[in-house]
């Protein structure tokens, strides 16, 4: 007999077969060892499966109908844990990102998160004394970040603030961090040690190079620029042609029609509202200048916080050379 699909199906469902068909299959199985083995195996299967201990249930239909009646509420409640879990996961992820941002350095993906958290913390600090303490800690944190970048040999621009502790030629120390200051910058004006300064610096080759220096005052715990020294050329570019530092007093500024600027007395003590223009050999990447468009490098438009548009707001005489 042919062991086709139909025959095998009949073998598997022997108990269902009508008497005559069943007799045919059994007759064949007597002479066919393969079918005989199958039948014996199926009988054992049926016995084993039928002998499985049945489960007994404790639940009742009344309980089920109780569950079924407030269907909407039930569905809403089933969704609640999912929502809560999602919220917890989201908060946990945010928390992890915030926690991880604590050690982020400038230029890293999480660094803006770190700054955002700091800004939020500062905004939530209502007490003036505590806020000042917070600002001092933030300043120190920036200096520490600069050090960490130097140690790791990374290149990165950033801004630091703090007290100008000492000046040793081209090496200025701000809050314990040594910064190389170019001749150009030094020629533009030199604040006295003890002055608070804000510096745009570039970390490179394990050193910090000054791009611009703002003399800042403190207003309500915030640094407020009151003067600026700036250059687009870090000291390591000193070998490049010297910058044209001053702009003729009567030359109009690009971007500020009608305004005029000049340079402070070279090497003299820097006074608030002083402005110096960058040299032509480097872009002005600081916060207080834009590159010259005249081709001479002699003119710049004032940047935010620069003396011409300082916080005093009157503008009278600001940006003029002294």
């Amino acid at each position: 007999m042919k062991h086709d699909r139909e025959f095998l199906a009949n073998l598997a469902t022997l108990r269902e077969l009508p008497g005559a068909d069943r007799a045919v299959v059994l007759e064949h199985a007597r002479t066919c060892p393969e079918c005989s083995a199958r039948l014996a195996a199926y009988e054992r299967q049926d016995a084993a499966l039928a002998a499985l201990t049945p489960l007994t249930s404790q639940s009742s239909c009344a309980h089920l109908l109780d569950r079924a009646t407030p269907a909407r509420a039930g569905r809403a409640l089933r969704g609640a844990p999912v929502f809560a879990l999602t919220l917890v996961l989201l908060l946990a992820l945010c928390g992890r990102a915030v926690a991880a941002s604590g050690s982020a350095l400038p230029g890293e993906a999480l660094y803006p998160v770190k700054l955002g958290v700091e800004a939020l913390q500062r905004a939530l600090t209502m007490d003036a004394v505590k806020r000042t303490e917070f600002d001092v800690r933030s300043e120190q944190r920036r200096v520490n970040e600069a050090r960490a970048l130097m140690e790791r040999g990374r290149s990165q621009e950033m801004t630091i603030s703090g007290e100008l502790v000492s000046i040793d030629g081209g090496e200025w120390t701000v809050s314990g961090l040594q910064v190389a200051v170019s001749e150009t910058l030094r020629a533009a004006g030199q604040p006295e040690p003890g002055t608070r300064v804000r510096m745009r610096i570039e970390i490179s080759a394990g050193r910090a190079w000054a791009h611009s220096v703002d003399v800042v005052g403190v207003d309500g715990g915030r640094d407020v620029p009151v003067g600026a020294v700036e250059t687009g050329t870090p000291e390591r570019s000193r070998s490049l042609p010297a910058a044209t530092e001053a702009v003729p007093a009567n030359e109009p500024r690009v971007g500020t029609p009608g305004a005029a600027t000049g340079s402070p007395a070279a090497g003299g003590p820097m006074a608030p509202n002083d402005t110096v223009t960058p040299g032509p050999d480097g872009p002005s990447r600081g916060t207080s200048a834009t590159p010259s468009q005249s081709g001479t490098g002699a003119t710049v438009a004032p940047g935010p916080g620069q003396a011409q548009h300082g916080p005093s707001g009157d503008g009278a005489g600001q940006g003029e050379g002294h």
Binding site: R5, A9, A48
Partner: peptide
């Protein structure tokens, strides 16, 4: 019904091997 019988036949063989 044909599909049931076919599946049963296959199921029995698979169960036989697994068991």
């Amino acid at each position: 019904e044909g599909a049931v019988k076919t599946r049963l036949s296959r199921a029995r063989e698979l169960f036989r091997k697994a068991y």
